[in-house]
Design a protein around this nucleic acid. Sequence first.
DNA 1: CGTTAAGCGAGACGGTACGTCATGTCTTAAC
DNA 2: GTTAAGACATGACGTACCGTCTCGCTTAACG
Lengths: 209, 209, 209, 209
Amino acid sequence: MATQKSKQPAPDATRRSEKSRRAIYDAALDLVAEVGYPRTTVEGIAARAGVGKQTIYRWWSSKAEVLLEAFLDLSEQAAQQAAPGQAYAIPDTGDLAADLKAVLRMTVDQLKDPRFEAPSRALAAEGVVNEQVGRVFVAKLLEPSLQLYVDRVRAAQEAGQVRPEVDPRIALELWVSPLAQRWLQYTGPISYDYTDTLVDYALHGLAPR
Amino acid sequence: MATQKSKQPAPDATRRSEKSRRAIYDAALDLVAEVGYPRTTVEGIAARAGVGKQTIYRWWSSKAEVLLEAFLDLSEQAAQQAAPGQAYAIPDTGDLAADLKAVLRMTVDQLKDPRFEAPSRALAAEGVVNEQVGRVFVAKLLEPSLQLYVDRVRAAQEAGQVRPEVDPRIALELWVSPLAQRWLQYTGPISYDYTDTLVDYALHGLAPR
Amino acid sequence: MATQKSKQPAPDATRRSEKSRRAIYDAALDLVAEVGYPRTTVEGIAARAGVGKQTIYRWWSSKAEVLLEAFLDLSEQAAQQAAPGQAYAIPDTGDLAADLKAVLRMTVDQLKDPRFEAPSRALAAEGVVNEQVGRVFVAKLLEPSLQLYVDRVRAAQEAGQVRPEVDPRIALELWVSPLAQRWLQYTGPISYDYTDTLVDYALHGLAPR
Amino acid sequence: MATQKSKQPAPDATRRSEKSRRAIYDAALDLVAEVGYPRTTVEGIAARAGVGKQTIYRWWSSKAEVLLEAFLDLSEQAAQQAAPGQAYAIPDTGDLAADLKAVLRMTVDQLKDPRFEAPSRALAAEGVVNEQVGRVFVAKLLEPSLQLYVDRVRAAQEAGQVRPEVDPRIALELWVSPLAQRWLQYTGPISYDYTDTLVDYALHGLAPR
DNA sequence: CGTTAAGCGAGACGGTACGTCATGTCTTAAC
DNA sequence: GTTAAGACATGACGTACCGTCTCGCTTAACG
């Protein structure tokens, strides 16, 4: 590859301290949970992690990036714990409505888990205003989850429970986006009833049949 | 509503300089459009407005609040210009789908208008992470617009075009939230086709009829 | 008829509020005594005096001037109380040394009176760095006191107790200045013994006779 | 002496930038000379020195302290230049009066040297009102000079030219303090004649012999 | 004796500087 | 050669006062 004449003389990743990386992730997540994203600082993360500031700047370019990776890491760990060694998928009992409702109820619970709430809210906010972060956030965290819905809807189409001309990628937004917006923007309360209703409206439409 | 508990002995609003207020609004909106929200500073707003910093801090407590009011003011002006002296409403031609599609196409255009995009994105982001700002943003800007959909859906219910047991406040989220999320989080492109599709899916459901 | 549009349109002294002037003097002296000169502000004086800031700026041009006049006023009052209706003078018992020692002992006491110490120290300091204030301070406060020594030394010359070629204005500095410097600059302690010694040295010289 | 009780965790002096320190001294002295002490600001010193404000606040706690050290440094340099590697002393020709007159004439010149006048006047003023600064100013700058007079007077006592019971520390104030007061407080002009007269009066007294 | 123009209290205003905090870069010593 | 530590230049923060400028409201002199 071309040798960079960049500011950083291209750190050698093989020598990287794994212990520091972990400590930085933990410190970042803890601080965001404790004092909120805006009052979390690179200096604070370094101090809490027992690490020099330069060690952070060597490997990341902003606190948003640090938090993004830290949260990615957290999510992977959580996924590993939930279903070790296997890909996560939406159950397929043959009843699309029931399956969607079940998954959405789990999502409602997760959105209220404080361990997840603070950092994901922070990242979402940063992503709104910082397109680069936003795209990574979506690509690495959001899309993989949405893809599961795509798969499930496609299965339902094959089973004749969803009209064949429906675009699954758009379909899933009928329940995912309303929930996301209520959570992100405080536009309304979040409950099992609410998500159940969304699924019903989405599947059967508003118009009388 | 609630009385202030601030340190300052409550400035006398009757003596407030209208000229300064306007200049601050303009400077705030311009700066957000030019350099983005994070790099917009209170100091910068003051300098651009030709105003002392204290004049800003006397009347607002953060740059988020300044921008919120500035944007509110801008919206009111825009509304006045669009439809002077009358309340805005969604047209009712008798065809719900057509009416919704028409309005959503206008929304798509507005979301791409740079004069609106920068500040509203900034405020949305701030609102995600700062609940107080978020709630004001929703109450003052979002809800009034959403209420128009509630009214239109209710009319459709009376006309027998929407099932009577449907909750209009939830119904509208089937098209509003997907659009909002794509715009806010860069989860997908925004187009007339897309919003048209949303309306169709929402009204007729995914399931075969 | 058309008065100047100069900075100050020359305020009409006859309409001046005596009550405000007194309140300002009191507030200024109190504040200097309580929080020290540097932390005394025009705003603070106005607030404590229950007076608008403009009322201060109408009649004085700086806090130094305010304090200078306040202290002048205080001194006059004190002088009136000490010796109502008559000019103050150094006693002339015929014994120059004794007379000087007596007066200097009184000066020592006065220098330690907190009511006088704070403002006079403040004014002296301001005068060091602000020649205009310094000259007024000297002319209005210091010189009149020094003149009393000039008179007394001249009387001693006529009585043959001081050499005729001695310049009384310089002579008095032999005891006044050392005391002043110790007080102003903390170059040494101040006591009756010290001032007594100064008088002896000054009158009889250091050289053996 | 006393340990610090500051908030900052005690900066590491070994890492201190010598270049910055010098630049700060120079900037401080220049600014005081150019615009006067009251209009010299920490911000201005930092800007002129090409230094961050924090670098000043890290090592000093006020502009008075900065100037004090800057002036101390200047004095040491000047002393080094004048008499490299040796202690300064008042000459002893055997004629006390002549020696004192000679030294005082040099002092008169120095007091009129603008390079010295502005900062020393500023520090003296600050010291009048700020006892801590005053005591350092006296201990570090004034007393060492005065001690030279003490030594010379003591030598004169041993030579029988000054009465043995005279306290040299007080004796020197007979000429030093008058000169100091005239300079500090503008109580009179300063000239060779004046200082010569002071020495004569001090040595021989005012009273006829 | 009522008019009216000044001084007055109050305080908002455009500014300057404060002292603090965090940024991102750089240097040093320890490993 | 990465690391912890932390000094550095930069620049924004939010506060305190500056000195100027309106506001109504006394209040005293005059017409």
